[in-house]
C-alpha cells in the first residue's frame, strides 16, 4: 500500500488529471450560471452547481484504470509481480489506495466547486447557504462517487489490461452505451454505474429515476468488487511477458 502511494506521488499524471478536473468544474459551474438556467429561488440550484464535483469522477475512473493497465503499458507490472507474486494482493492494495485517492480527489473537487458556486451566487446577488440546503449531502455524495469510480477504474484496468482499450470502453460506456442500455432495461436502468453516480449527488434530475444515495454508493462499491474479483480470477492470472 505504501508502495502504491509512492507510485502515485512520483509521476505527474495524477496532478494533471486533478488540474483538468478543477478546470472542468470551474467551467461547468460557470456554465450553469452564465446560461441563465440557474433559478436562484430554487433551493436545488446550489446543489446542482456543486454537484459538478461528482461529475469529474470520470477523471478518478481514468486514474484507477491507469493504476493497473498503466503498469502493463510501462511493463512495471513485471517488477510489481516480482515483489508481490500473489497477484490478488496487488489488486486488493490498489483498490484500497485508490478508493482513498478518490476521496481526496472528491474533497479537492468539492472545495473548488463550492468556491466557484459561492462566487457566482454572490455575483448574482444571492449567497451560498452551506447550512440549510442539503449542500453537504450533495458534497458527500460527490466524494463517494469519486472514491467508487476510482475503485471501479482499478477493476476495469485489471480486467482490460490495455490502457487505450480500457479507457475507450469506460468512456464509450459513460457517453453512449449506458444510455442505450438504460432505455432497453427501463426501470432497471437506475442500477447502472453512471446513473448510480448521479443518484449519489442527491439532486433530482427531471425525468430520471434514481436510487437513494446510500443505495447508489452500495451499488457502485459492488461494481468495483465484482470487476476486481473477475479480474483476479481471469486476466490478472495470465502470463506476463
Amino acid at each position: 500500500m505504501r508502495t502504491e502511494i509512492l507510485k502515485l506521488r512520483t509521476t505527474r499524471t495524477p496532478v494533471m488529471l486533478l488540474a483538468a478536473a478543477q478546470l472542468v468544474i470551474l467551467a461547468g459551474v460557470s456554465g450553469l450560471f452564465v446560461s441563465g438556467d440557474a433559478d436562484l429561488a430554487d433551493p436545488f440550484t446550489a446543489r446542482r452547481a456543486v454537484a459538478h464535483a461528482g461529475l469529474v469522477s470520470i477523471f478518478s475512473l481514468i486514474l484507477g484504470i491507469l493504476a493497473v493497465a498503466g503498469e502493463y503499458r510501462h511493463k512495471t507490472i513485471t517488477d510489481t509481480y516480482l515483489s508481490t507474486p500473489r497477484r490478488g494482493r496487488v489488486v486488493a492494495a490498489k483498490l484500497g489506495v485508490y478508493a482513498v485517492v478518490g476521496v481526496l480527489f472528491g474533497v479537492i473537487s468539492s472545495v473548488t466547486a463550492v468556491a466557484a458556486t459561492a462566487i457566482w451566487l454572490t455575483v448574482k446577488d444571492g449567497s451560498l447557504d452551506l447550512a440549510s440546503t442539503g449542500v453537504w449531502s450533495t458534497l458527500a455524495g460527490c466524494v463517494a462517487w469519486n472514491a467508487c469510480f476510482a475503485a471501479v477504474g482499478v477493476g476495469i484496468g485489471a480486467l482490460i489490461r490495455n490502457v487505450i482499450a480500457a479507457v475507450a470502453v469506460a468512456l464509450a460506456w459513460l457517453a453512449l452505451i449506458e444510455g442505450i442500455v438504460g432505455q432497453l432495461v427501463g426501470d432497471l436502468g437506475r442500477w447502472l454505474p453512471f446513473r448510480s453516480g448521479q443518484a449519489l449527488e442527491g439532486v433530482p434530475f427531471p425525468g430520471v429515476d434514481l436510487l437513494p444515495q446510500w443505495g447508489a454508493a452500495f451499488v457502485l462499491a459492488t461494481y468495483a468488487a465484482i470487476f476486481a474479483l473477475v479480474a483476479v480470477s481471469t486476466t490478472v492470472r495470465r502470463d506476463v511477458s
Partner: peptide
C-alpha cells in the same frame, strides 16, 4: 520496465518499498 516520467532514484525507492 520503467515509467518514463519517474526518476531513477524514485524507481528504486518504489522497489525498495515493495
Amino acid at each position: 520496465g520503467f515509467h518514463p516520467g519517474r526518476s531513477g532514484r524514485d524507481h528504486l525507492r518504489i522497489l525498495a518499498s515493495t
